[in-house]
Design a protein around this nucleic acid. Structure first.
Lengths: 207, 207
DNA sequence: TAACTAACTTAACACCGTTAAGTAACTTAC
DNA sequence: GTAAGTTACTTAACGGTGTTAAGTTAGTTA
C-alpha cells in the first residue's frame, strides 16, 4: 500500500511542478510565447514527459484556468459575511478589480486569452468554479433588488452590466488600451477604478 | 515619370493585396493561427516577398490596427451631425457595440489581441486614428456635462466608464465569456447590449 | 550591348507542438 | 534470486512556424 501511494504522491508532485512552472512562464512571457520545451527545461525533464501528465498545451491552460477561478473565489469568500447586499456588491467590485490588477496574467488567462477556449466550452464540467463566482454576483444583485435597490431593473441586466464594467476596466488596463487614466501605481489604480464603478452604482439605484 | 509611378502604384497594389489577405486570414483563423506562409500562398507569392513590404508579422498587424480605427471612425462620422450631445453619446455607444459585433475579429485585433502591442506603444505616431475616436467620445461627454448631464462628475470618469461598459460587453461577448445573455443573434444582441448601456446612462445622469 | 538595379525566389536556421519508438529502473511472480 | 513485466522517462523524428542570407531573373539605364 505505502509503496503505491508514494508513487501516486510523486506523480501528483510532478504534475504540480509542471503546473507551477507553466503558470510562472505564462505569467512571465504569456501563453503563446511559452513553449512546452520551456516548461520542460524549467523542471529539468524532457518535453515529452509533460505529455504523460497533460493531453496537450491547452490541457495545462485549462487546469490553470480552473485554479484562477478558485483564486477569484478566495477573493470573494470573506465578502460572504458582509450582510448588507449593496455593500457586498461594492466589495465584490473592489475585490474583482483587485484580483485582476494583482493577478494580471492570470486574469488574462481566465478572460482574455483566446486559444483554448474551444476545449473549455466543450468540457462544461470544468467550468464549475467559474459558475460559482458568477452566481455569487447574481445572488448578491438579487438580494440588492429584494432590498429595494435597482428598482425596475432585471437582475441579469444589472449583474451583466456590473460585470461588463469591471471587466472592461480591468481588461483595458491589463492590455494598456487606456489612454485616460495613467501614471498611477497598481494599488491606486485599482482603488480609483473601483471607486468609479461604485459611484456609477450609486447613481444607478437612486433613480 | 509615368514608368516609375506605375512601379510605385504596383508596389502599393501588392502591399494592399498582402493587407487584404492578412486581414481575411486573421479574421478567419485568428492572428496566431495565421502564418506568413498562409498569407503568401493566398496572394500567390513566396513568403519572403512579404518581408519586402513589411518588417515582420507584427508590422502587418499594426497596419490593420490603424485600418480598424479608421473604420471605427467611419461608424462614428455620421453621428457628428447629431446635435443633442446626450443623444449623440447614446448613438456612439450603439455604434461602438455594432462595430464590435459586426467586426468581431477586427475588434479583437484592436482591443484584445496582445502580442504586438509592444511595438505599437513605442510607435506613438500610428495611434492617431485611435486618439481621434476616443476624443470624439470625450468631447461628446464634455458637451453633455456642459448641457447639465452627469452633474458633479469628471469628464474623464464618465468617458472612461462608458468606454469600459461598452468594451466590457463587447469583449465578453466576443470571447464567449458571457453565460447570461445567450441565444440571441448578432443584431439583437447588439441592440440589447446598447439598450442596457443606455439605460445605465439614463440612471446615471438623473441624480 | 553591357552594367546595374529592383523584385522576387530558393534554401536554410532555429524554433514550435506533438508522437512513435526505445531504454532503464523498479515491481512482481515463480 | 532470477526472469518477466510494468512504469516512468528519453531520444529522435515529423511537419509546422517566423525570419534571413544568398541567388536568380527580368527590366532599366548608360
Amino acid at each position: 500500500m505505502t509503496i503505491s501511494t508514494r508513487k501516486e504522491r510523486q506523480k501528483e508532485e510532478l504534475k504540480g511542478k509542471i503546473l507551477q512552472a507553466a503558470k510562472e512562464l505564462f505569467m512571465q512571457k504569456g501563453f503563446e510565447d511559452t513553449s512546452i520545451r520551456n516548461i520542460a527545461e524549467k523542471i529539468e525533464y524532457s518535453p515529452t514527459t509533460i505529455y504523460l501528465y497533460f493531453k496537450d498545451k491547452d490541457d495545462i491552460f485549462c487546469e490553470l484556468h480552473r485554479e484562477g477561478f478558485s483564486l477569484l473565489n478566495q477573493y470573494f469568500r470573506p465578502l460572504a459575511h458582509v450582510s448588507n447586499p449593496y455593500e457586498r456588491l461594492k466589495a465584490i467590485n473592489k475585490a474583482y478589480i483587485s484580483f485582476a490588477m494583482e493577478n494580471g496574467e492570470l486574469y488574462d488567462l481566465m478572460f482574455i486569452i483566446n486559444s483554448p477556449m474551444k476545449s473549455i466550452q466543450k468540457d462544461e464540467s470544468d467550468w464549475e468554479e467559474g459558475k460559482r463566482a458568477f452566481s455569487f454576483l447574481v445572488n448578491t444583485v438579487q438580494q440588492c433588488i429584494d432590498a429595494g435597490y435597482f428598482k425596475n431593473m432585471q437582475v441579469e441586466v444589472v449583474a451583466f452590466t456590473v460585470w461588463s464594467m469591471v471587466h472592461g476596466i480591468a481588461s483595458l488596463e491589463i492590455r494598456n488600451r487606456c489612454p485616460v487614466v495613467e501614471n498611477l501605481n497598481e494599488k491606486d489604480l485599482a482603488l480609483k477604478a473601483s471607486d468609479m464603478v461604485n459611484e456609477i452604482l450609486d447613481r444607478m439605484h437612486k433613480k
